[in-house]
C-alpha cells in the first residue's frame, strides 16, 4: 500500500527555446487514481518521464514524502512501476521469460519472483498462454503483458501511459478492470493518461488537464465538469442537412462550440438562454424541419474540448 505522497513542484523542461513543460504542480496521494489529460504535444509524456526519473527537469522538484527524487531516484524506483505507451517487451521471449527477466532487474528474490509471476500471469489473463513467444501474441495480449511487467515488484505507484491504445474492447475492458482492482485491493496509486475520456471518467478520482506544457485545469471529475456548469449542451436533429443553416448557427453570438456529427448538430448555450425561438426562426428561413432536440449535461470530453479547443493538433 502506498504510504507516501508523490508531489511535483514547479516542474519545467526546456528544450533549447521550447518550453515542453512549464511550472507544473500536482500531487498524488496513496490509493488514488489520477488522470492526466491533454492533447498531443501537451507535455504529458515529458512530465511522466520526469516523474519516473527517466529525464532530469530543467527546474522544479519531484518529492516523495519530501524526499527529493531528482537528486536520489533510488527510493522512488523501488516503489514505482511504469507502463509505457509502446510495447516494451522482448518479442523472442515468452511471457514468463519476459517476466523473469524484468523481475530480476528489480533484484527480486528468486522465490518471491516465481510466486509473483504466477499471480501476475493470472492478473493479466495470460496464465494459459505464458509459453508462447510474445511476437506471436495479439495486440491485446502484448498490452496486458506490458502492464504485467510493471506490476511484478508490487509497485506502490504506477504510471500508465495510454495503456489501451489499439486493442479490442475485450482486452480494453480487462485492462480497465485490472487497473480498478489493483487500486481497490492493493491500494496502488495510479497516474493514468489516455485520450479515451470515458476511461478516465470511469477510473480516476481526480483529473489534471494539460495543454501547451501547463496544467490548465485540475480537480475531481465533478469539479472539472462544473467548469461548464453555467452552460448546457443542446443536440438537435433536422430532417435534412443544410450547410447554410449550420453556417448561420456558427455565426450566432448566443451559441458556441457548434459541431456536426452525422445528422446531429450540437452546440453550447448559457444555461438561462431561451434558444428555441431563434432555432425555429432559422428552420423557417432555411426550410428545414426540426425533428428533435435534447439538452445534455456536459461530459469530460466537452470540458476537455472547451479548454483545449477544437482545432486540430499536430
Amino acid at each position: 500500500m502506498a504510504k507516501s505522497m508523490l508531489e511535483v513542484v514547479n516542474l519545467s523542461k526546456v528544450y533549447k527555446k521550447n518550453k515542453a513543460v512549464d511550472q507544473v504542480n500536482f500531487y498524488i496521494e496513496p490509493g488514488e487514481i489520477v488522470g492526466l489529460l491533454g492533447p498531443n504535444g501537451a507535455g504529458k509524456s515529458t512530465t511522466i518521464a520526469m516523474i519516473s526519473t527517466l529525464i532530469s527537469p530543467s527546474a522544479g522538484d519531484v518529492l516523495l514524502q519530501n524526499h527529493n527524487v531528482i537528486k536520489d531516484p533510488t527510493k522512488l524506483r523501488e516503489i514505482l512501476g511504469v507502463v509505457p505507451q509502446e510495447i516494451a517487451l522482448y518479442g523472442d521471449f515468452t511471457a514468463r521469460e519476459n517476466l523473469e527477466f524484468f523481475g530480476s532487474v528489480h533484484k527480486m528474490p528468486k522465490k518471491l519472483l516465481k510466486e509473483r509471476i504466477e499471480v501476475v500471469l493470472k492478473q493479466i489473463g495470460l496464465e494459459h498462454e505464458h509459453k508462447k513467444l510474445v511476437k506471436h501474441y495479439s495486440g491485446g495480449m502484448k498490452r496486458r503483458l506490458n502492464i504485467g511487467v510493471a506490476l511484478l515488484h508490487e509497485p506502490q505507484y504506477l504510471i500508465m501511459d495510454e495503456p489501451t491504445v489499439g486493442i479490442d474492447p475485450q482486452s480494453r475492458n480487462h485492462i480497465l478492470e485490472t487497473v480498478k482492482q489493483l487500486n481497490q485491493e492493493m491500494k496502488t496509486a495510479i497516474i493514468y493518461t489516455s485520450h479515451y475520456m470515458e476511461e478516465v471518467e470511469y477510473l480516476c478520482n481526480r483529473i489534471y488537464i494539460m495543454d501547451k506544457g501547463r496544467i490548465i485545469a485540475s480537480g475531481t471529475k465533478e469539479e472539472i465538469k462544473s467548469i461548464l456548469s453555467s452552460e448546457k449542451i443542446i443536440v438537435v436533429k433536422f430532417n435534412r442537412h443544410s450547410n447554410s443553416l449550420i453556417k448561420e448557427l456558427m455565426d450566432q453570438p448566443l451559441l458556441s462550440n457548434v459541431s456536426v456529427k452525422e445528422s446531429e448538430v450540437s452546440f453550447t448555450v448559457a444555461k438561462d438562454t431561451n434558444f428555441l425561438p431563434l432555432l425555429m426562426n432559422l428552420c423557417d428561413q432555411y426550410k428545414v424541419v426540426l425533428n428533435s432536440f435534447q439538452v445534455e449535461e456536459p461530459t469530460l470530453e466537452d470540458v476537455f474540448l472547451h479548454l483545449t479547443g477544437r482545432a486540430l493538433r499536430n
Partner: peptide, 13 residues
C-alpha cells in the same frame, strides 16, 4: 527505441 531501455533505467539496476 522500443522503451525496454527505459524499463531497465528505472529498475533497481
Amino acid at each position: 527505441r522500443n522503451n525496454i531501455w527505459d524499463r531497465l533505467t528505472i529498475s533497481s539496476m
